[in-house]
């Protein structure tokens, strides 16, 4: 990680110095042991604030819209795919971006790590594949691979898809025979079990919309849940309304979601929102051979009509 950090700082400094970009968007250290925070650096002396580690789980593509002048952005595999989606969806022109690619080795599941402790973690560090954690009552050395986020475990695009610079050698990509085991598990449930699963899933939702707001592809000026004429969804804690929000949001992400996991990362209630989006990713993959954010020249399948579109669902 340190080599990544040094390279990120070096490249950023160069770009700012030559005035190739007006700012660099990356991660900085947080105030809590496993926290990092997105930051925009525009002064050369501030590049030292940039860091990169296994807790940089948010998606920086969420931060690249509406800037003046050319910007640089640090991009993991998933970030780069969302950058592509942004370019395809006219949210930013390619020329306005300098992409500093980071071959990603996976992000850690902070909730899973935290659940090993009864009290708050006060120290976190990592050394290659080993995570070191300390609370006031105990210390843990963990193998990072055992504590990867679910989406990272199933990731097949760790390397950035597009980039202008790379901060390290490309990593090996895994190929999976069953890329959607989690979805299959839900698909195989009978209707009642499935209903219970989703009912339980959204039980604690407080409708803070952190999942939506952390999601780079949720950029509508007015989200449908905030719409008042017509009001598509009730705003209270009625279960139907809560679920409607999650269902509809997932549909809006169909064919566009890169499974970056930012939604789950942001959720304060530990709801695995990916249970909704993943099914649609699987369908896009199986029906349209489509994975979002891999091609600058193609629009997502639901954005286009072709007479050859699969229509087996019409019975």
């Amino acid at each position: 990680m340190d080599t990544y950090i040094n390279k990120i700082r070096e490249l950023s400094l160069k770009l700012l110095k030559k005035k190739e970009v007006v700012k660099v968007i990356g991660f900085t250290k947080g105030t809590l042991p496993m926290a990092t925070s997105p930051i925009a650096i525009s002064l050369e002396q501030d590049v030292e604030k940039l860091i990169f580690n296994s807790t940089c789980g948010l998606n920086l593509a969420n931060y690249i819209r509406n800037h003046k002048g050319k910007i640089a952005v640090i991009a993991k595999g998933c970030d780069s795919r969302n950058i592509i989606t942004h370019i395809v969806e006219n949210q930013i022109p390619r020329e306005q971006l300098h992409i500093i690619g980071v071959p990603c080795k996976g992000m850690i599941d902070k909730t899973k790590v935290a659940s090993l402790f009864d009290d708050d973690i006060i120290e976190f560090s990592e050394d290659n594949d080993t995570l070191l954690l300390k609370s006031s009552s105990k210390e843990e050395r963990l193998n990072k691979q055992d504590y990867l986020r679910e989406n990272c475990k199933l990731c097949m695009h760790k390397n950035p898809v597009i980039y202008d610079d790379l901060v390290g050698d490309l990593v090996d990509e895994q190929t999976l025979d069953t890329p959607y085991p989690d979805v299959e598990q839900i698909e195989n449930m009978d209707a009642d079990t499935k209903w219970q699963h989703f009912d339980k899933l959204t039980k604690n939702c407080i409708r803070c919309y952190a999942c939506r707001n952390a999601c780079p592809i949720c950029y509508c000026p007015t989200c449908f849940v905030d719409e008042s004429g017509p009001q598509w969804v009730g705003k209270g804690q009625d279960k139907t309304d809560v679920n409607t929000f999650h269902f509809l949001r997932a549909f809006h992400c169909a064919g566009r979601c890169t499974d970056c996991g930012a939604c789950v990362e942001a959720c304060p209630m530990d709801i695995n929102v990916r249970d909704f989006t993943r099914k649609l990713n699987k369908d896009s993959f199986e029906l349209f051979e489509w994975e979002a954010g891999l091609d600058l020249t193609k629009r997502p399948p639901l954005d286009a009509y072709s007479p050859n579109d699969p229509n087996d669902f019409i019975k």
Partner: peptide
Amino acid sequence: PLKCSECGVCVSICPYSAPMF
């Protein structure tokens, strides 16, 4: 226009090229 996110779905999907930026 206040609600438009400029994503271009309409431009892409219209068989008659009616929507444009």
